[in-house]
Amino acid sequence: MSEQGHEHPNETHPAASSEQDRLTVSRRWLLLKIGIAMNAVVGVAITIPVLKYLFSAIKPDAEYKSWVSLGPIASFPVGETRLAKFTNPVRHSWDGETDGVACWVRRVAEQEFQVFAINCAHLGCPVRWFPQSQLFMCPCHGGAYYADGSRASGPPERGLFAYDARIVGGALQIKAGQMPTLSNTAKLERPKFVQIDGAHTDEAKGDSPCRG
């Protein structure tokens, strides 16, 4: 502040001291530029780890997923669809109840299972199974799915998300770990296990073709 103060009167002085002054000022500008450049270098050096920290949650799906057991297959009667619960393999002690995940297990035959995500393929609300009408219904925007997970009606544009499933030592296992959404589960367009009725994998647009 005070330095600037005595610069101003100098400007009115004649040639010699003005030349001196010009050099001083341009030297100070240079120093400021060096200062800014140093900040830029340090800034970039700091920003890189900060960004890495910030984006650390972004990982390939495979890193979040692992095989989870849903219990002995005997607990799922053939021909029925039951709610199963498991603890998400990626969890923290401060998650509270939110590390619990539910899914629908449909035992098609002795060794044949379909495991559907609880999350509606529309916008993720929890779908409910109605054994009487053999439909999954979504409470949010009225989506409905058939027993094999294929789309029946409403806003969803596809069938329910299905987990990869396998039977190991008499227990049913699924590949789980992250919330199923269109970005990570869309590739599982068809459930892994052979279906009883092949005609049902078509992603019908509005009304489904005759299935009578």
Partner: peptide
């Protein structure tokens, strides 16, 4: 689910929003 519909980066956006693979701590 809305974010997941963004082409290409949808999955990453979901991870950023949730801070991990699921809605949790």
């Amino acid at each position: 689910s809305i974010l997941s519909r963004v082409p290409w980066v949808g999955g990453s956006l979901v991870h950023m929003m949730l801070g991990g693979p699921i809605i949790a701590g």
